Simulated assay, not measured.
Amino acid sequence: MDTSNEKGASIYTHLILKVYDTWVLNISNTYAWRCNTQDVLLNHFRRNMAAKHLDIGVGTGYYLANITDNTNNITLMDLNPNSLTSATKRIGPHRINHILQHDIFMPLPDSEKGQYDTVSMYYLLHCLRGNMHEKAQAIEHASQALTDGGTLHGATILGKDVKHNGFGRYLMKIYNKKGIFCNIADSSEDLKDALERYFDHVTIKQHGVVALFTATNKKK
């Protein structure tokens, strides 16, 4: 298991999770990353959500808690047990089919492969260690969870070839120094290249400094 990813995941204590929505989804998204949570991120999640779903990097469960139609076959995957507990409670245990504490850099259990119509990764990639070339391993493992016709979708904060405002530059500096983020070298082009290793059709749209992506037709 990648110990550096364990360090990043350990940031999400019960206390941090209590203020996560206010600080990250409201203040930071609006003023630092310039990507509205409800109008942009939640809508992107909703458009790409299917009946049997795997959410990797669950945060507080905000997205799934706000999407209730046809979503009662959900699997949650995260390295942090606090996040899994918080998200399960918020989404509703009756909607959760399976909970898996797992590092996405590690191969998935065979029982999870080829099982899901959709897989989501929201604000996960910019927290993973390494450059985008190395983070592609996480994308590969996520792709293996999908059915042949399934869709991978998500969002990540970019650090390269984007224009951060003063607030964003300050947060980027602090978060990367503390190991919360590892995204200084992450560009939209590198994200596209990583996704296209495993999918035939990739779409990336940028809002502020956030890249929203969808990937379909996974390669054999």
Results as ranks from 00 to 15, higher is better:
3 T>G: 00
11 I>R: 13
24 V>K: 02
28 S>G: 06
29 N>M: 09
29 N>Q: 12
33 W>P: 08
38 Q>P: 00
39 D>E: 12
42 L>C: 09
44 H>W: 05
45 F>M: 02
45 F>C: 04
46 R>D: 05
58 V>R: 05
61 G>L: 07
64 L>W: 06
65 A>M: 09
74 I>P: 00
76 L>W: 01
80 N>T: 07
82 N>M: 02
82 N>V: 03
82 N>C: 05
85 T>V: 11
86 S>G: 00
94 H>K: 15
97 N>P: 00
97 N>I: 04
99 I>P: 00
108 L>T: 08
109 P>C: 05
117 D>N: 15
119 V>I: 07
122 Y>Q: 13
122 Y>N: 12
125 L>Y: 08
129 R>S: 15
131 N>F: 09
139 I>H: 03
141 H>T: 03
146 L>V: 11
148 D>H: 11
151 T>K: 08
160 K>Y: 10
161 D>N: 15
165 N>G: 15
168 G>K: 07
169 R>I: 12
171 L>T: 09
179 G>H: 04
180 I>K: 10
181 F>M: 07
181 F>L: 08
187 S>W: 04
190 D>V: 02
193 D>L: 08
194 A>G: 04
200 D>A: 15
200 D>Q: 14
209 V>M: 03
210 V>A: 08
211 A>Q: 05
213 F>P: 03
217 N>V: 03
218 K>E: 12
